[in-house]
């Protein structure tokens, strides 16, 4: 058991996986342009230049000069601006330490810096672009259809109520309640870490919008029955009845059978 967990914690293991994974995603996006049109996003030369400076200072240690990758981090050529915006914008990158997967934490860079780095990485090779306003506009979206798509494609990892779930060997699918529409969309098109890629041929942009609408709806409305106990299903319900329910009942039985003073 110890050996396993040590192997899992071996710094190179996660890196190697990340490297392979991101190389694939990057490579695929460069190749399979028929399904995922690398949207021509306009970044100014200035932004690219600033981004390169930030990249060299903050990312190149692991991802290498020119983002070609190193022993400690995958190549970012062709991962696209969306990937950078997701990883840096949610605070996952830069990683604090090597682990089963990159953790969410407060973003280390402001929006402008993130955009500059995205511009730089996007300039290295075609990849998924940061979704525009119209892609995220959920005013016309159908949350019920989003729910159907979500249950088939997402619920097995992220839980039917988007409360998150466990993966193998310390990895996990995070809860989605804090995620912004843009980051959710970017996660779907880039497939960060162990999440599969859901390209536009798999889940159409309309369906992606519906999924976001569904997530927003269940997040906003809350549970009609009262506190949702973490939306973790029967486990938290069982724990609640044993601890709180029986606890209160025992308190009453003790009072009931105690002598009055």
């Amino acid at each position: 058991m110890k050996a396993l967990s040590q192997r899992r914690r071996h710094p190179l293991a996660a890196v190697a996986l990340l490297l392979i994974g991101l190389l694939f995603t990057g490579g695929v996006y460069a190749l399979a342009s028929s399904t995922n049109e690398a949207k021509a996003q306009t970044f100014s030369a200035d932004e690219v230049q600033e981004g390169e400076k930030l990249f060299v200072a903050n990312c190149a240690t692991c991802h290498g000069m020119g983002a070609v990758g190193s022993e400690n981090g995958p190549s970012l050529v062709g991962v696209g601006a969306a990937s950078v915006d997701f990883q840096v914008g949610t605070g996952r990158m830069p990683m604090q330490m090597q682990g089963p997967q990159a953790q969410v934490k407060p973003p280390q860079f402001n929006d402008e810096q993130t955009m500059q780095m995205a511009a730089y990485v996007a300039s290295l090779g075609a990849g998924p672009a940061i979704p525009g306003e119209e892609a995220l506009d959920t005013s016309e979206a159908d949350p019920a259809n989003g729910g159907v798509v979500f249950r088939v494609n997402c619920a097995m990892c992220h839980n039917a109520a988007a409360a998150g779930g466990a993966l193998t060997r310390g990895k996990y699918a995070p809860a989605l309640s804090g995620s912004t529409a843009k980051h959710t969309y970017e996660a779907m098109v880039t497939g960060p870490q162990n999440m599969p890629v859901f390209n536009d041929a798999n889940i159409t942009p309309e369906d992606k919008r519906d999924v976001i609408a569904f997530l927003e709806t269940i997040d906003e409305q809350g549970s009609p029955g009262g506190a949702d106990l973490g939306s973790l299903g029967p486990v938290s319900e069982g724990l609640f009845i044993w601890v709180a329910g029986l606890g209160v009942i025992i308190a009453f039985t003790v009072w009931l059978t105690a002598r009055s003073s």
Binding site: T25, G27, V28, N153, G191, P196, V197, F198, A201, N202
Partner: peptide, 10 residues
């Protein structure tokens, strides 16, 4: 051609 590397289709 819809199925890019890293994709999972149900």
């Amino acid at each position: 051609s819809d199925v890019t590397i890293g994709s999972a289709f149900h």
